[in-house]
Structure formats: structure tokens, C-alpha cells
Write a protein that binds this DNA or RNA. Structure first.
Length: 954
RNA sequence: GCCGAAGUGGUGGAAUUGGUAGACACGCUGGAUUCAAAAUCCAGUGGCUUCACGGUCGUGUGGGUUCGAUUCCCACCUUCGGUACCA
């Protein structure tokens, strides 16, 4: 009789729920440990086998830490606002509130069967008013603060106003958008609206007109990281540039800290590099160029001030503020045409076709070092949003400037002699300066340093650090998000709602489709949007990253009505010790969450400077996509499909690859995967358009239910083409965990996903291998049960061998869990079970601790066995076994004997045998004598307890 | 282009600081059990070579360091991920 997984798992799932086995308290004598999963979007598709990979890993770790005596916070919730939820709602026509609610129930059900130790009493959901009240509140706080560079932290905007009324902004050092100097007197003379227009340049949450990624299909603005290759990440629709007034978060104020504090984190180097590249810090100088015959100055940013003697022209971004002013009368129409041309291009066109374009403005700037007049151009390759939106072009030492100068016949003056570095690229900082007056003969490095000094002496610029990181666009012209807690007065001055007016609840409507031309759905709700006394509401909503930027704090104290979490709870839980989630959030979510955390830290609301100490990116479990080859040309009006065997031999044929549902395919995922007649019929039933299609395989043809064999073969055998790819509904290759759990049990499923390979690695799902784990579970059960399936445990003392395998397993599994090497831990459990089986061991002294050891991996079967041992308390609340080295030292060990590094023989020795004894024993070994005979022994290398190597000369 | 990660049997993958390459598992082959099957158990399983003992080649490719290299160094190839007119 075998182990009955479904009975056992149902029983304990109910038991754990009733007994609140996984409930965690905020006060405990035990040390705290916080294990967090990235919470899911509750999409309609439900979970596939890839989703739980990270959850299983974190659950094992959380359970392990609990057994090790920690008070472990391991919560779960839902990221329910945002595009995916809304897209699903739009597809189905069901209100997003209803559909997300349904989907969440489905997710909870699925997560429940997998036996996770989540404390569901702490469940949160970003779209619930009790939660987003605090998302809105944090936004109002960002609105009410600016970043003070002298204190290097956020400070209330009120103190900035005070400073303005005393001294204007002349002495203010703060992160800001746009600098116009004013005195205290000027400030006081400003109207309220003018004052707000100044303040908005300092606020951490502010409005500005920006060119944003507009997607007409989705009817919304997208964040930079939602755009991939000029297409929207979701749906792959074209994206163009559009001017709109938007809310932004001044994340750039924190750029330096976001970069520097990466050093304090226990994240993978790969991930830190991604973040650091995203922040993109570069050191250089900002320089001012006078304009010939004008008072205007053009500010440029350069990392190569040393090359200024080679700056033979300047380029402004087409959207630069000075373009109109600096355009010569006779160039007006060509410039206007060019700007129009550039503006009409979609992001996709711009990216795919990087041709060199530009037009001259007809005006000239003065090179501050050569005093020569240099022409001013505008060109696409200079970006409005980076640096100052203008460059000094040095065609001798910059590839883009070079290509531009060559195309338009502009002067090129070589200023760096790179003859000593023949392999150097054009912009590499190598070589000696030339044609550069006082810099001549200096190395590039020396020249940069000297130039920075000169620039500051002559007051034509200053050292400057620039970041690629842009301020975060925070507005979405959508329905399903947090409404901004902002109202505008009659003068269009934004005011934040006070805490007692929060949450500002998202109004209920059935008209939630995005509007055309950037019209927000909320703006159609006039009763809601328009208030008394000329006041009106902001009608955009926040993006999905808003709710996920601080959710880890809410879990600490999820029901708190007076603050986002009590200071006691935050003081106790501090930060997340282990965070597990997908690498797709490497940039956006992790960056914003770190930013918000640092802001809250500046306000003294969180004690730590970083939210996530240790981070693991689990790999993706991929699916196999099965394709049929269809000829693009129809034959007699019917589609023709070819067997992969035929198609592979005829690459000249014009095929379309049609993805088909994997359920129809035999030997799914293998090279021999094929459709039999039943499979083809299923395919036709699924896609009736192919009802009368012709299917040609090597053994014959199949059409309209009739198989015509070529010879005497009776079977049709239509080979399909298999590829590994993302598991996705659109590829019809989603494997649902429910079926696997139903067949093999959650314990087996959990262990199998861990056994597949290293947690951080992506791998295709392969159901065949699960048999091995299934056998292990059954074998494990039989260690405790006799032939009649009765629990049979011996009280006999364990022998040396039995204790050795137990203690080896304790040691190995513990160190593997600490290293997140779960696949090798599972393997050790198999070795242990195989060994105990061979030893016929059913002794309590061995099996009882082993069962606790396995509990984090297989929570159900171990709970069942633990209760059979007679314990009332859950196995998940017992104490982790401790290994004892004394059982691990074997009386004899086998070491290899090598000649010239190649193993030639083995020697069984006691581990504390002396070097001399080992050498003698090795030299007397028959095999070794054979290999050393007649040769000179040069050296004998002995690593005690490891190996002996004899070096001989022929 | 730049940055990052990785290349090990038929397959997924093991291998502390350089020290027996291929643990564990899948698959496959043979056997036991069975009327038969499922399940279970046992044995074998990197290539080549040998009746056998054994030999020999093997961790993407080519070099190097070393008594000894999957591990360290140099050059290159391939795959995957990130990013891209960032001045």
C-alpha cells in the first residue's frame, strides 16, 4: 500500500488553516526574519508551473528559518492595480474590480494547494482603499518635499518657501528641474500661481510638460521600461512621442544614493550592474558657449573637456528651448520642416533607422578656447532629456560627431594622437593631446584634469555629474489605478488632500475604457472631477509601480488605520531579509521601491536605508512550443500541412509555423513529437478553419478524416516542430500545476521544481523527470511503514552507519539551504533514503530528525509522519536537527594514487595516517609500481586525507 | 556596439579554497517478480579500444601556468539576458 497524497494533503491543509499554524506575531523573544515573494498580478490565466518556483524556494527558506528558531514573516498579497488587470477586464468586459476579485480567489486556491506557509491574515491588495490610502499619502508627502543637497536628504517644501522669502533661491542647493535665479523681493512679488510654478521645479512629485511614450492602441502613456524596441511591452503596439502635462517623481534626486548604496546589498553582481547601468553616472563638465551676436549662452555637458580644441560645431536637440531663437531668418523653413519630420517619426522608426540627419540653424557659437566661430546645428542624435540637450561636437574623437561631420562636410581637427594605441576606438580615453595649445603633450587623463581647472578658473563652466536615470513619469490616462490625491484650485494650482480626506476612493463606473487622445476615463465623470469653487480633481491615475513601491512595509502591520504601519512594527521587522522574484523587475520595481524607502528613511519613518537586503532572482520555467508547418500557398483553396520530417528536408518551401495546443501532441517536447490521427482531429476541432486541410506526412496523406497511406503503413505520424520558449497562453503551452499536484501531490511537485536545477537558472518544464521524485516520496513513506502500510518504528539504538548518513544529510541539507542550492539538497535526501533503505533502518533515532529535516521541502507528508510519531505540535514548529561531526569521521577513507596527475590506483587508509606512511604505502602499490618502474621519481606530493601524486621522469 | 551570465554524457544537472569529472535523477539496455501488465526490486549505462585485466580520449575552441585545471590566466567561438545615438 502506498502513500495517499491527496487525502493527507487535504487533511493538513484544513488543519493548518483551522489552527492558524502559520500566523506570525509582531512581538517575540525570537530574532526576526522577513522572507518576501514578489506579489503576483492576479491575471485571469491563473498560475502556471513556472510561477511557484520562487514561492517554493522562499517557502523552504522561511520554514527552515522558523525551525531554526526565528520569528519569520512570510506574507503574500496581490498587486491588483495596473495595466495587466485592466487589459484583462477590457478583454472580458467585466469590471476590473470584479475580475481581479475573482482572479485573486483563484490564485489563493492554487497557492493554498501547494502548501505555502503564508500568513494569510496579513494579506494585502493594492487596489483596496484601506491600502491605497497610504500609497496616496506617501504621494502627498513626496509632493510636500524637496531634496536638499546640503543635508543630502528630503526636506519639507515649507522650509524652502521660508528660504525663498528670506533670500530668494540664490543660495539654495537642491535638486531641481529648471533654474531661474530670483531674489527674496522677487519671490514676494510673485503671484500664488507664479510661486507654485517655481516650487514645482523643486517638489519630489511635480508636474511638467513632457514628451512621453504615447501608445494610441492602449490609449495611454507608457513608462520607458514598458516600451521595448519602440513597441509597447504589452501587446506590441507602436509607440510615438506626444507632449502632455504629467506627474513626475524626482527619482534623480536620489541617483547618487541609489548608486552608492548598491554596495551595501547582498544582490547578484549581474543585478547590481543592471541597476548601476540604468542609473548611468558619468563625470564631466558643463560648459557655456557664447552665441555670436547674442546674449544667449548654450550650456553643454561633456565628459571630454580635454577635446574642446577639436569642437568645430555644436548640436542642439530639435526640441531644445533655444532652437527658435537661434534660427536664422533664411534657415527658418528648413528648420521647421526638419522639426516636423523628426516629430512625425514614431519611436520605432527612429530606432530601426538610425540615419545621420540634421540641419544648420544659420547661427554661430564661439568656442571659448579657440575663440573661433562654430556653426550651430540641430540633429536627432542629440537627446533633449540627457545632459543639457546640447553638445559641443568633436568629430575627431566621437564616432557620432565624426559620422555627422563627414556627411555634412564639417571641419575635423585631430586633437588626440593615438598612434601609440593602434587598437583604440575613436572615443577611448587614450593617447597624447595635440593641436590643443596648453594641453599639448599631456595624456588624456591629465588633460581632463587640467581642463576642468581652467574651465572653473575662467568661469565658463563647472564640474558636473550626469545620470542617465530620468525622473519617473507617474501619470496614466487610465481607470484602474490609484486616483491622485490632488485637487486644482481655480488658478490651476495643485493642492494635496490632507490625510483625513484619504483614501480618495476610485469612483465606480462601467465606462472604464481609455479615451482617445489622452483623455482619462475619470475626466468623463464630471460629477466626481468637478468640485465647488472652481476646484477640480486630477483625473489621471498612478502607475502599477505605485502600489508595489512600499507594500513590503504594509505586511508588517497590514490593518493599521492610523499610519501605513506602526513604528513599533517597523522597528521590529526592519527590512526584508530575503526577497525572491523574477529578474523582469530588476529595474523598475526595485528602483522605485528603493527610492520610496530612502524617502521614508529621510522622514525618519523607516530605520534602514535599503528595503531588500538579500535578493534572489528565480529563473523562468519555460514551455515547449509545438508548431505545425503549413505552406503559405493554399492548394485548391485548402491549407496544406507538412510533417516536420518533410519540412526539414525542404527548406526552400515557404512555410508558416502554426503554434498548436500541446495537449494534442504525442511525445510532447521531444524530437519525435507528433500528431496521430486523433491529434489531427482534435486540432481540426480546435481550429475548424482547417476542416478540409491536407496533412502530408512521410507515410501518407490525411484529409477530411481519411488516411491514405503511401504503402502498407496504417498509421499517420505527423511530426511537429518543438521549440523552447516562454510559457504563455498565446503559445498554447501552459502547464497548469493543479493537474500535476493532483497526479503526484504538492510535496512531490515542490521537490521536483527544486530538483530541476539551480533556482536562478531558466529551464524548460519536463514532466518525465518527476517520476524520480515521486519514487523518492513513496520510498520515504515506506521507511516508516511496513508492507501493510502500518506505521512501524523501532526504538533500537542506531548504528554507526545509520548515524553517519543522517548526520551527513543534516550537514549537507542545511548548508545547501543556506546557499539556496535546493536541487542538491533534494539529491541528498534521495541518497539518504536510498542508504537507509539498504540498511533496512526504521529506527526513531534516525527517522525522527530526518523527518524534521525534510519538512520545509515536503510539508504535508512530514506533518503526517510527525503526528504518527505521536506529536500534537506541528512538525513545522519543532526544532531543526543539529549535526554532530563525530559521526562524520569515517574509520577508513579511499584516496586516489596518481602518477603524473593521472589516477592509477586507490588506497584505503585511515584518515590520520602520516605522510611518510602514505608515501611508503603508495610506492608499494602494485599498480603504482607498474607505472613507476624504471623511471626516476622526481617528487611525491601528498595531500593528507586527499590524494597522493608521484611525479616521474621517463 | 557596450555590459552581464553561461557552455560538462542521450537529457536535467553534481563536483568547498586547483586534487578520483559525470553525484542525484530521467531515459535506455538486460534481468527478477507476474498468466500478463502496472508497480517494485537487481545489474549495466561518456566515446573509442580490448575476450578480459586494462589502455586511451574526454567539461565550447586554441594556447598558457601547474606535479595536477571543469576550476586560474590569455585569445577566440556560440547561446541567453540587459541596454543602446547617454555626449
Amino acid at each position: 500500500m502506498d502513500y495517499k497524497h491527496s487525502e493527507t494533503e487535504d487533511k493538513w491543509r484544513k488543519h493548518w488553516e483551522e489552527h492558524k499554524t502559520y500566523k506570525v506575531e509582531n512581538n517575540s523573544e525570537k530574532p526576526k526574519f522577513y522572507v518576501l515573494d514578489m506579489f503576483p498580478y492576479p491575471s485571469g490565466a491563473g498560475l502556471h508551473v513556472g510561477h511557484p518556483l520562487g514561492y517554493i524556494a522562499s517557502d523552504i527558506y522561511a520554514r527552515y528559518k522558523t525551525l531554526k528558531g526565528f520569528n519569520v514573516l512570510h506574507p503574500m498579497g496581490f498587486d491588483a492595480f495596473g495595466l495587466p488587470a485592466e487589459e484583462y477586464a477590457l478583454q472580458t468586459g467585466i469590471h476590473p474590480a470584479t475580475s481581479t476579485q475573482q482572479n485573486m480567489l483563484g490564485y489563493k486556491e492554487q497557492l493554498g494547494t501547494l502548501g505555502f506557509s503564508f500568513d494569510w491574515s496579513r494579506e494585502i491588495c493594492t487596489c483596496v482603499p484601506d491600502y491605497y490610502k497610504w500609497t496616496q499619502w506617501i504621494f502627498t508627502e513626496l509632493f510636500a518635499h524637496y531634496y536638499d543637497l546640503t543635508q543630502d536628504k528630503s526636506v519639507s517644501i515649507e522650509s524652502l518657501k521660508e528660504e525663498f522669502s528670506k533670500n530668494g533661491n540664490l543660495q539654495v542647493q537642491a535638486s531641481h528641474t529648471h533654474l531661474e535665479e530670483f531674489s527674496a523681493a522677487e519671490w514676494s512679488a510673485y503671484s500664488a500661481k507664479e510661486q507654485e510654478d517655481v516650487l514645482t521645479n523643486y517638489r519630489l512629485a511635480y508636474r511638467k510638460v513632457g514628451y512621453v511614450n504615447w501608445c494610441e492602441e492602449l490609449g495611454t502613456v507608457l513608462a520607458n521600461d514598458q516600451v521595448k524596441d519602440g513597441l509597447s511591452e504589452r501587446g506590441g503596439h507602436p509607440v510615438e512621442q506626444k507632449a502632455m502635462t504629467q506627474w513626475y517623481l524626482r527619482i534623480t534626486a536620489y541617483a547618487e544614493r541609489l548608486l552608492n548604496d548598491l554596495d551595501t546589498l547582498n544582490w547578484s553582481d549581474a543585478l547590481k550592474t543592471i541597476q548601476s547601468n540604468w542609473i548611468g553616472r558619468s563625470e564631466g563638465a558643463s560648459l557655456f558657449f557664447d552665441v555670436d551676436g547674442s546674449n544667449e549662452k548654450i550650456e553643454v555637458f561633456t565628459t571630454r573637456p580635454d577635446t574642446i580644441f577639436g569642437a568645430t560645431y555644436m548640436v542642439l536637440a530639435p526640441k531644445h528651448e533655444l532652437v527658435a531663437q537661434l534660427t536664422n531668418e533664411k534657415n527658418k523653413s528648413t528648420v521647421a520642416d526638419y522639426i516636423k519630420h523628426v516629430g512625425s517619426k514614431s519611436e520605432l522608426e527612429r530606432m530601426s533607422n538610425k540615419e545621420v540627419t540634421g540641419v544648420p540653424l544659420g547661427s554661430y557659437a564661439i568656442n571659448p578656447f579657440t575663440q573661433k566661430k562654430v556653426p550651430i546645428w540641430i540633429a536627432e542624435y542629440v537627446l533633449k532629456d540627457y545632459g543639457t540637450g546640447a553638445i559641443m561636437a568633436v568629430p575627431s574623437d566621437d564616432e557620432r560627431d565624426n559620422a555627422f561631420a563627414l556627411k555634412f562636410g564639417l571641419e575635423i581637427i585631430p586633437v588626440v594622437d593615438k598612434s601609440d594605441f593602434p587598437d583604440a576606438g575613436m572615443s577611448d580615453k587614450l593617447g597624447k593631446m595635440m593641436n590643443s595649445e596648453f594641453l599639448n603633450g599631456l595624456s588624456v587623463k591629465e588633460a581632463i584634469a587640467l581642463m576642468l581647472k581652467k574651465v572653473e578658473e575662467r568661469k565658463i563652466g563647472s564640474r558636473r555629474i550626469n545620470y542617465k536615470l530620468r525622473d519617473a513619469n507617474f501619470s496614466r490616462q487610465r481607470y484602474w489605478g490609484e486616483p491622485f490625491p490632488i485637487v486644482y484650485n481655480a488658478d490651476d494650482i495643485p493642492e494635496a488632500l490632507p490625510l483625513d480626506k484619504l483614501p480618495l476612493v476610485l469612483p465606480d463606473t462601467d465606462d472604464f475604457k481609455p479615451g482617445k487622445g489622452g483623455e482619462s476615463p475619470l475626466s468623463r465623470l464630471k460629477d466626481w472631477a468637478n468640485l465647488e469653487n472652481g476646484y477640480s480633481r486630477e483625473t489621471d491615475v498612478m502607475p502599477a509601480v505605485a502600489g508595489s513601491s512600499w507594500y513590503y512595509l504594509r505586511y508588517m502591520d497590514p490593518q493599521n488605520d492610523g499610519s501605513f504601519a506602526s513604528s513599533e512594527a517597523i522597528e521590529y521587522w526592519q527590512d526584508v531579509d530575503l526577497y525572491v522574484g523574477g529578474a523582469e523587475h530588476a529595474v523598475a520595481h526595485l528602483m522605485y521601491a528603493r527610492f520610496w524607502h530612502k524617502f521614508l528613511h529621510d522622514k525618519g519613518l523607516v530605520p534602514t536605508i535599503e528595503p531588500f537586503k538579500k535578493l534572489i532572482n528565480q529563473g523562468m520555467i519555460q514551455g515547449v512550443i509545438e508548431f505545425l508547418y503549413m505552406l503559405r500557398e493554399k492548394e485548391n483553396g485548402e491549407s496544406v500541412f507538412h510533417c516536420a520530417g518533410i519540412a526539414d528536408q525542404h527548406p526552400e518551401n515557404d512555410y508558416v509555423k502554426i503554434p498548436i495546443h500541446v495537449d494534442f501532441v504525442n511525445d510532447y517536447g521531444s524530437k519525435k513529437s507528433y500528431l496521430d490521427k486523433i491529434g489531427i482531429d482534435k486540432f481540426i476541432a480546435w481550429r475548424p478553419a482547417y476542416k478540409n486541410a491536407l496533412f502530408i506526412c512521410t507515410k501518407g496523406n490525411y484529409q477530411s478524416g481519411v488516411f491514405t497511406p503511401n504503402s502498407n503503413d496504417a498509421e499517420s505520424h505527423l511530426l511537429t516542430h518543438s521549440e523552447v520558449g516562454k510559457m504563455s497562453k498565446s503559445k498554447f503551452n501552459v502547464i497548469n500545476p493543479d493537474q500535476v499536484v493532483n497526479d503526484y501531490g504538492a510535496d512531490c511537485f515542490r521537490m521536483y521544481e527544486m530538483f530541476l536545477g539551480p533556482i536562478e537558472q531558466s529551464k524548460p518544464w519536463d514532466i518525465q523527470g518527476i517520476e524520480g521524485v515521486s519514487k523518492f516520496v513513496k520510498k520515504y513513506w515506506r521507511l516508516f511503514h511496513n508492507e501493510e502500510n502500518a506505521f512501524t518504528i523501532s526504538e533500537e539504538k542506531a548504528n554507526e552507519e545509520e548515524l553517519k548518513i543522517l548526520h551527513e544529510t543534516i550537514k549537507k541539507v542545511q548548508s545547501d539551504i543556506e546557499k539556496f542550492s535546493f536541487n542538491t539538497a533534494v539529491s541528498q535526501f534521495m541518497i539518504c533514503a536510498n542508504t537507509l533503505k539498504k540498511l533496512n533502518c526504521n529506527k526513531r533515532e534516525v527517522l525522527y530528525p530526518l523527518n524534521i529535516l525534510l519538512a520545509p521541502f515536503a510539508p504535508y507528508i512530514t506533518e503526517e509522519i510527525h503526528s504518527k510519531f505521536g506529536h500534537k505540535e506541528s512538525v513545522h514548529h519543532s526544532a531543526y536537527p543539529v549535526h554532530d561531526e563525530k559521526y562524520l569521521t569515517a574509520s577508513t577513507i579511499t584516496i586516489p594514487l596518481c602518477v603524473n596527475g593521472k589516477k592509477r590506483s586507490e588506497l584505503i587508509v585511515s584518515p590520520n595516517m602520516s605522510k611518510d606512511e602514505m608515501e611508503t604505502a603508495a610506492k608499494n602499490d602494485a599498480q603504482i609500481i607498474k607505472w613507476t618502474e624504471g623511471k626516476e621519481i622526481v617528487k611525491v606530493i601528498i595531500i593528507p586525507g586527499k590524494m597522493v601524486n608521484i611525479v616521474v621522469k621517463a
